[in-house]
Structures are given as structure tokens and as C-alpha cells.
Amino acid sequence: MSRSQRDLVWISTFAVLVAFAVPWPLWGVDRVVAGLPVWIWWHVAWLGLCAVLFSRFVRSGAWERGMGRRPESEPESALGGDRP
């Protein structure tokens, strides 16, 4: 899979991150775990996951490529036709 195809995976990743920040699978569940309703823990863990994946998005250079720009850390050849 080329770099630009892998970058497209980020779009679906973001969609999933946004969609399941709300704990839909736990709709109506009322279990309490470690002092808080279990769906609050889902949300807490999910936002932690978001921070980790956001950081990977930035470090992979997809942040720049997503805007059609070349990350500073990357050699010219890896660009995949973004520049004339």
C-alpha cells in the first residue's frame, strides 16, 4: 500500500474516533465499575486513544500530506506527485 493510500485510512480512523467517542454499544447499560458508570470509563479511555492516534497522525507526516504539502522531515522522492 502506498503512502497516499495509507493516508486515506486516516479519514476512516477519524470517522470512527468521532462516532464512538459516544459509547453507543453501552446504550442503556447501567453497570458501575470502579466508582463510575462503565460508559464514562469508555469515554475516558476513548479520549486517551484519540490523543495517542492524533499524535501518530501528526508524527507520520500525514498532517502535512493531507493539505498537499511536504513534511519537513521527508525526502523529495517520497512526495508522490504533490508538487509540479
Binding site: L17, A21, V22, P23, W39, H43, L47, C50
Partner: peptide
């Protein structure tokens, strides 16, 4: 409301 606001401001 924590979930709603967390999703809004933290992710979306």
C-alpha cells in the same frame, strides 16, 4: 453531558 461535550470539544 460529559459524553456529549467530550465528543464535541475533545474529538470532533
Amino acid at each position: 453531558w460529559l459524553i456529549v461535550m467530550g465528543t464535541i470539544d475533545g474529538v470532533l
